[in-house]
């Protein structure tokens, strides 16, 4: 009985989702997200104090909170793939789900589901915040909101896959998260400022531009450009994960 790749991937994803359902992990993640999203919404609606409240986008807080969710997604996905190495649970996982590709795709699938749930949470939280602070939700805004949501989801997924790849390559949660944060927060900034022409091709810049529907980071980078570059990076990162993991020994 040799089980098909999709079944193994779904089973691995179910295992990961089972792990994250534990109260402590949930409370920590949702708590941090609530705090940050609440803070960003408060900044959008109260600190900035728009002259005309109606001019502010109802999901302004969501747009700001997305950057935090992106970092959080990177850390969660890096940690969830790397911890299998550090806890040596990868061998248990493989003995029960004997397909290296299945394990990788399962991890990615679990990450996508988690990101969808968290993205939905901060989106709905921000909408509720906006509505409770006097903005109106007009029918004409619905399509725009859905677009923002889907772009935010795509951007966060890309960061999650970046984290998963780092987890598989570094095989250590701490190193994977450190490398991820170092690249996202420092190295790209240095590259952007020193090699201006490289900015349009940097992964995090494009992921962020995707989240902002092409208007968040640089007006010179179009949404379509970011979409294509981001997709390229996602394919490259997945290929890197597959290449490194399928050839490596399981510790």
């Amino acid at each position: 009985m040799s089980t098909s790749l999709p079944i193994i991937a779904i089973n691995v994803a179910r295992g990961d989702l089972f792990k994250i359902r534990q109260p402590r992990a949930l409370v920590t993640i949702v708590g941090a997200l609530t705090l940050f999203t609440g803070g960003m919404n408060f900044v959008s609606f109260h600190i900035k104090k728009p002259a005309v409240l109606a001019l502010i986008r109802i999901d302004a807080g969501y747009q700001l909170a997305l950057s935090f969710l992106g970092i959080l997604a990177l850390c969660i996905c890096a940690s969830y793939s790397a911890q299998e190495f550090s806890l040596k649970t990868l061998r248990n996982l493989f003995l029960h789900a004997p397909s290296r590709l299945g394990v990788i795709f399962g991890k990615v699938l679990a990450g996508v589901v988690i990101i969808f749930a968290l993205n939905s949470y901060i989106f709905l939280f921000s909408l509720a915040f906006g509505l409770s602070n006097g903005t109106e939700l007009r029918a004409s805004q619905v399509m725009g909101l859905l677009r923002d949501f889907s772009h935010g989801f795509m951007s966060t997924c890309a960061l999650g896959i970046f984290g998963t790849t780092l987890g598989f390559i570094c095989a250590s949660s701490v190193i994977a998260i450190a490398v991820g944060l170092l690249w996202s927060l420092i190295i790209e900034s240095i590259l952007s400022s020193t090699l201006a022409h490289s900015t349009a091709w940097l992964p995090i810049v494009n992921f962020e531009n995707l989240a902002g529907s092409g208007a968040k980071t640089l007006s010179t980078i179009t949404f379509t450009h970011s979409l294509v570059v981001s997709a390229g990076y996602v394919v490259f990162l997945l290929a890197l994960s597959i290449l490194s993991f399928t050839r490596a020994d399981i510790p």
């Binding site: 089980t3 079944i7 089973n11 295992g15 089972f18 792990k19 248990n92 996982l93 029960h96 789900a97």
Partner: peptide, 8 residues
């Protein structure tokens, strides 16, 4: 239980 979920 997690191994049961992961297993085939």
């Amino acid at each position: 239980r997690l191994l049961q979920k992961v297993g085939v």
